[in-house]
């Protein structure tokens, strides 16, 4: 009987130990699961935003979204809309919401020319207002290597066309270089003929011109005499003018000096004069009210002007 009792006690002890072990193991598993969830951001507070792109190229679900190179969220959904555009939903950690202004935009660019694509949120200039949750941000895609090549091609093609046109024009027999040279040659011949004719005419005119020049020479001689006379008188006149100017300058200087002195001295004098006049008025006013002077002076009273219907005597000459 005692052996059976002993066996039951050991079995109970073993069962209790197993139960403890299982409980600890369960708790450890739960802790690991929670840690994984925390690590995966299951308990992080996030905010959703969206943007619309022309194409889903280089955009995939789970793709990292960065701000200034730091991962702050990820792409949660990419779907094709009815109008053929691509709607992209992103989630951003609530801690980084402060960087997403109402005018922020999402840019897709590649690391280097051929690197992997990343989505980067570029905050806008107006930092005073943040984008609300679920706001639709603007999206742009930076040019890759293909776009760059296309751009170069677009730039070069018109230049090549221009070169082709220019060389074609130069080679044209009528309008190009050969035709132009032929026309220059013709013009040179015509010019030679014109010069020959002109030479003959100038020879005829020469005689007349020589006579005119002779007269002009005489006039110039007279003009030269006048200039010499003027030259002789001019220094004196200039000296006198200079003297007058010097004197005028002296007068102006003097006037300026007086004005400057007056500027400083007159206002105080005027103020003093005004104060003195006020004092004098007060003294006279006081004296007027003092007996026995007050007995001889009438106090000021309303004035009556004598009637005058024609103060300027204008009636004498009727209009």
């Amino acid at each position: 009987m005692s052996l059976l009792t002993q066996y039951d006690a050991d079995a109970e002890s073993l069962r209790r130990g197993i139960r403890r072990f299982l409980l600890v193991a369960l708790l450890a598993m739960l802790a690991v699961a929670v840690a994984i969830a925390v690590r995966q951001g299951a308990f992080r507070q996030t905010t959703g935003y969206s943007f619309v792109a022309n194409s889903a190229q280089d955009i995939v679900k789970g793709q990292a979204v960065r701000i200034a190179g730091f991962r702050v969220g990820s792409v949660t959904n990419v779907k094709l809309k009815d109008d053929g555009q691509v709607a992209v939903d992103i989630e951003i950690d609530a801690d980084y919401m402060r960087f997403i202004t109402h005018d922020a935009r999402v840019e897709l660019h590649k690391e280097g020319l051929v690197g992997s694509a990343t989505l980067e949120i570029m905050p806008g200039a107006d930092q005073s207002r943040l984008a609300p949750a679920q706001a639709r941000l603007t999206f742009s895609r930076s040019d890759g290597l293909a776009a760059l090549a296309n751009q170069v091609r677009d730039e070069f093609i018109p230049i090549l066309k221009d070169i082709k046109t220019i060389t074609g024009t130069l080679a044209d027999a009528e309008k190009g270089l050969p035709g132009t040279l032929a026309r220059i040659r013709e013009s040179a011949d015509a010019l030679n003929v014109l010069l020959a004719t002109s030479n003959r005419q100038v020879e005829g005119i020469g005689g007349t011109a020589i006579r005119v020049l002779g007269k002009t020479e005489q006039s110039l001689g007279q003009f030269s005499q006048t200039l010499e006379a003027t030259n002789q008188r001019l220094p004196g006149m200039l000296d006198r003018t200079q003297q007058i100017l010097d004197r005028t300058q002296q007068v102006i200087d003097h006037a300026e000096k007086i004005a400057a002195e007056a500027e400083t001295s007159v206002p105080p004098i005027l103020r003093d004069g005004s104060a003195a006049a006020a004092d004098a008025r007060e003294i006279i006013g006081g004296a007027k009210q003092t007996w026995p002077i007050s007995s001889f002076i009438d106090p000021p009273a309303p004035a009556v002007l004598k009637p005058d219907s024609d103060p300027r005597g204008e009636a004498g000459r009727a209009r």
Partner: peptide, 12 residues
């Protein structure tokens, strides 16, 4: 004054 004005007006 008004008497003078009156005479002037009469003259005019």
């Amino acid at each position: 004054i008004e008497t003078g004005n009156a005479w002037r007006l009469i003259a005019a």
